[in-house]
Each structure stands twice: as structure tokens, then as C-alpha cells.
Amino acid sequence: MALSKPSSDSDFPYWLVAATAIAVFIAIVIATNDLYTQVLVIVSKGVWITIFVTLVGFSLASALGLIIAVMGLSRSLVMRQVARFYVEIIRGVPILVLLFYIAFVGAPGFVVAWNYLSTPLQEAGLIDELKVRDISLMWRAIISLTIGYSAFISEVFRAGILAVDEGQIEAAQALGLTRWQRFRLIIMPQALRTILPPLGNDFVAMVKDSSLVSVLGVADLTQMGKVYASGSFRFFETYSIVAYIYLLLTVGLSLALRALERRLRQAGNIDETG
């Protein structure tokens, strides 16, 4: 069956109209029902933790992923192999398993190593002995998400950098630009247009995967819903509200990212025609 180009009528976001109508209907139900309103007030206390974990975790994962990507494109064989080893191993471990490992193996191991290396400073009274409980569960969760997502994000950055025309890099080199100047002025601005869609997908995915931090007792959106439902036995109402809030976050982010992609695409077309 031959595929045809969609007409302009099919581009109208009917799905968004339907989703908006459902969202408005649910909002009216919540506003007019005391039980749903109570659930929303309690559960929404974890929204800020969810947002904080996502923003910090994604920012750190992007920075680490960029470093791994640059290492993977290095001229050094050792750095390339280290980067490939990191990516393949981390991508092969489920996020939930990584979360447990960092929280209950990595953190205690770090404390033991830190106390061993800082023994002279402790004996001199400059610092106190570090305890495992001093590392909060929230930061263990953030570190886990950072490590887990950095492997995927590094591949996004690597693909975007490789998509840049080699001729432009050679031209910049001929003009005398340093490696850092070529990367900052030539490579990354062009690679950004390529990596933005998959990077945005990873960001939305992290919003959803941030719910995994609830297994550590971090008071995020999912954990607040779990605590309320287990105490009130209002599972349907509670998890309906939790799902509703997650959908508002993820769909809203997806729409914002699509708008940003269109603006960058239009800016790129203007630059090319100008």
C-alpha cells in the first residue's frame, strides 16, 4: 500500500482537543468533589520533589552524557574504549536495579572509601566521620538517575555531533579556530537541532522514571499517593489523581518541546535562505 503525504487537515491536533476536554472534565470533577480535592491537596505535596529530582537529575545526566560523548569521539583509543564500556554496561542495567545498587551498595561503599582516605583530617579534628545516613535517599536517587540516563544521553550527543558536516569543521580549522572554539561555535549549535527531539524524549521519560524514587521512600508524587492510598484504602481516587498529574506534566512538556523544535527549525530555515 502506497504511503501519501498527510494533508493539512490531518495535521490539526484533534487528539489535543480531546485530551484537553478530558483534562477539563477531570478538573471540574476534582473541584466539585471533596474527596478528590482532599486527595489532590495531599498528593500534590510531592510534585515539587518530582520536579526537583527530574530537573537536577537531567541536568547532571546531560553534563555527564556530553563528557562521555566527547570521550567516545576522542582520538585516544583508551578514552573511546572507556566511554564505550560505560555506555554498554550502564545501558544494560535496569534503572530500578541501578537505583537499589547506588542506594544500598554504592553509597555505603563511598562512605567507607571517604572515611579511609580522610582519616588524617578526622584525626586532626578538621572533619567528622561520614555516616551512611548523612547521604540522603533523595540524592542517592538523583545520582542513580544521573548515571542511568547519562549513558543514553551520551549516545544522543554523539549522534548529533557526528551529524555535523565535516566540511564545516575543516573550514573552521582552516580559519584557525581552536578545538574548543570549533566545538562551541560550529559543532554544538548545529548538533542542537538534531539532538533536541531525542533529548526532549529522554527528559519526558525521566519525569516518569522519577516515580521510581518512591521505592526508597522519597516523598515524591508517587510516594505521597502510595502513603495516602495505603492509609485510606482509596486506591482508585488516589492513583487516578496521580496519573492525572503525571499526564499534565508529561503532555505539557511534550507540547512545549515541540514548539521549541518548530522555532529552531524555522530559525534554521531563515538562516539558510538568508
Rank of each mutant, 00 (worst) to 15 (best):
E129S: 14
D128P: 05
N115S: 05
V105S: 07
E123Q: 09
G106L: 00
G92M: 07
L77Q: 14
G109K: 09
K131S: 13
G92Y: 06
G72V: 01
I68L: 12
V78R: 10
P108Q: 09
I153M: 08
I135H: 12
L137Y: 06
Y116P: 07
S144T: 05
V156S: 05
I147M: 08
I147T: 11
I90C: 10
R84L: 10
L73P: 14
I67F: 11
V164S: 14
S150V: 03
L66Q: 05
A141P: 07
P108K: 10
P120A: 02
L145Y: 07
L99P: 12
Y149T: 04
I147A: 11
R91V: 00
A69G: 13
G148S: 14
A151F: 05
G167H: 15
L77M: 14
L145D: 09
P94C: 09
A151K: 05
G72Y: 04
L126H: 02
R158I: 00
R140T: 07
W114N: 01
Y86E: 09
F104Y: 11
I102W: 09
W114E: 02
D128F: 06
M79G: 03
S154L: 00
Y149F: 14
M79Q: 10
L130F: 13
I68S: 13
E155V: 00
F100H: 06
W139F: 13
F100K: 03
F152K: 01
G125S: 08
E166F: 15
S76W: 02
S76P: 06
A103W: 03
T146D: 01
L99C: 12
E155M: 01
V82I: 15
L126P: 06
L162P: 14
V164N: 13
A103Q: 03
I67A: 14
D134V: 14
V87Y: 10
A113N: 01
I90Y: 06
L117Q: 09
M71W: 06
F100W: 10
L66P: 07
G148K: 02
L121C: 04
A103K: 00
E155C: 02
A159N: 08
I153F: 03
I90W: 04
S118N: 10
V70R: 07
I161Y: 05
R84E: 10
R80C: 05
W139C: 11
N115E: 02
Q122F: 04
E155Y: 04
Y116G: 12
V112C: 01
L77E: 14
R133T: 15
W114H: 03
L96W: 00
G160Y: 05
S118Y: 04
I102F: 11
P120L: 02
L121M: 06
S150P: 07
E88A: 09
M79E: 08
R158S: 06
V164C: 13
Y86T: 12
R91F: 00
V97E: 01
Y86R: 09
V111C: 09
V78A: 11
V156Y: 02
